[in-house]
């Protein structure tokens, strides 16, 4: 009995080794020349970059009617979105918006993924929306520009009309860091300019733009940062997210609620 049990154990161990070795050989079948090519150089060692972390918790509004909500958890989450470039660009250089790990990512431009400073937006909702609050969380790794769009109307993005709030990261030189503006037929007029501050990179920020009649209010991380009254307000339109096609910025927890 003892000799039989020992031989069985040995057989199992050897068999496992054999199977493992075979698996290793199969896995090493070349999948492309590049995969076999190890880099000739290595970058210097750098401190690790901060991880993205969890999205900030969103407190539900007590008296609001949700018009739209997007968590970008699935690849088809963009099906109801319109992705536009707010400047004239060539067809093969359009901004890329993609779903990455459950978040909406601005991923540079074109198939070759070249970064560009062209302005771009992801829009959703109904052209008939009038009064609402559009809100999104964003995490910036490099892009440096984030914003919201409200009451967007127009078939051609370069001549559309909408309200836009945009904010720059603190490490950009440009001033003002925050601008609330009204774009009519593609021409922007500043309603509010805030010289500083901007936002901090590599942390989650929440920005919200409320449009009620001619009253416009911007909140950043829950604090009012800009307010304006437009005597000739835009009537209605879609809501959306704004940035530049530099890549390196992520959006999540998008919502549009009516007051």
């Amino acid at each position: 009995m003892r000799r039989y049990r020992t031989s069985a154990i040995v057989s199992v161990i050897v068999g496992t080794l054999i199977l493992g070795a075979l698996a290793l050989v199969v896995w090493q079948v070349p999948q492309g020349v590049a995969q076999e090519q190890q880099p000739l150089l290595q970058y210097p060692a750098y401190p690790p970059t901060p991880t993205m972390g969890l999205n900030p918790t969103q407190a539900p509004a007590l008296s609001s009617v949700p018009l739209a909500q997007a968590n970008f958890d699935t690849p088809d989450a963009l099906n109801s979105w319109i992705l536009v470039d707010l400047e004239t660009v060539l067809a093969d250089s359009r901004a890329n918006w993609v779903i990455t790990n459950g978040r909406l990512e601005q991923d540079e431009t074109g198939r070759a993924k070249n970064p560009s400073i062209q302005e771009t937006a992801a829009l959703t909702g109904s052209p008939a929306w009038t009064d609402y609050t559009v809100q999104v969380s964003f995490y910036d790794e490099m892009n440096g520009t984030a914003g919201l769009i409200a009451r967007y109307q127009g078939a051609e993005p370069t001549t559309a009309s909408y309200y836009r709030y945009r904010i720059l990261k603190n490490t950009y030189e440009a001033r003002p860091k925050q601008v609330l503006e009204k774009v009519e037929n593609g021409v922007a007029t500043t309603l509010v300019a805030v010289d500083a501050p901007g936002f901090t990179e590599r942390t989650w920020n929440v920005v919200a733009l409320t449009v009620v009649g001619g009253q416009l209010t911007v909140r950043l991380n829950g604090q009012v940062v800009a307010e304006s009254v437009d005597a000739a307000p835009l009537a209605a339109g879609q809501a959306g997210i704004y940035t530049r096609a530099i890549g390196g910025i992520f959006f999540d927890d998008f919502s549009v609620v009516a007051p």
Partner: peptide, 11 residues
Amino acid sequence: RSRLVGGKIHG
């Protein structure tokens, strides 16, 4: 060809 470095490259 040779591969100089890996990772994401811009431009």
